[in-house]
Amino acid sequence: MIDLTFYAEILPRLIAGLPLTLELAGLSVTLGFCLALILALAQRHGVIIPAIVRGFVAVFRGTPLLVQIFLIYYGIGQFRHGLQAIGLWGLFREPFWCATLALTLNTTAYGSEILRGSIASVPGGLREAARALGLTRFQTLHRIVLPLALRQALPSYGNEIILMIKGTSLASIVTLMEVTGIAQGIISESYRAIEVFVGAGLIYLTLNFTIIRLVGALETRLSRHLRRDGNTGGKPVAANLGNVH
């Protein structure tokens, strides 16, 4: 019933797209995290900057990623002459950088909301205590608030990483041949849609399962001091996966 030779034939071809999937996801998650942290911190004071950040977040959370990738890719194409003038066209001529930009902006929007929430959840008393001890504002942030906030944000951020991995499957609409793009190519020559999608699904599932495990291990490690006995470790991620976009 199951045609194993066909799977043996397509799986290596699909896996060939994995490096591109990982590059897209890795770059956008890394860049997105840095930007998200900046945006989350920038929202804490003033009026104008928080309003701008909220607008940015609302737009990127309120529209489908598919539309975002398309608009950024073909939209940038319309501003070719302006970009050539400032020397950025070389970068945005490449589909890879356009897709990375779209994915990064998207994950920045979601990530900044996750981090904003977790920073706000750090008890005010800790900040007061830090100030009473004579720590500067930067020291308080660096030594007290961020370590606690990041640990708190970890499960949600783990989900965000998984959503980004899944998001890279849309990059094929801007000609990038990552796993899903290759899958569609194989279908167009073999017309065996189900087998090919099952194969691709297995690759994503393995990848995401690995990430869930890694984030879970990290979380367990970071919450050693909270454990009352040996049994509560190991599944904090699962308990928090409900926190989605």
Binding site: G77, R80, R93, I173, T175
Partner: peptide, 18 residues
């Protein structure tokens, strides 16, 4: 070779110089 889903998408990229 770059693969596009529709004709107007490759036309757009031709016009954009990609």
């Amino acid at each position: 070779i770059r693969e596009y889903k529709t004709v107007e998408e490759h036309d757009l990229d031709l016009a954009a110089g990609r």
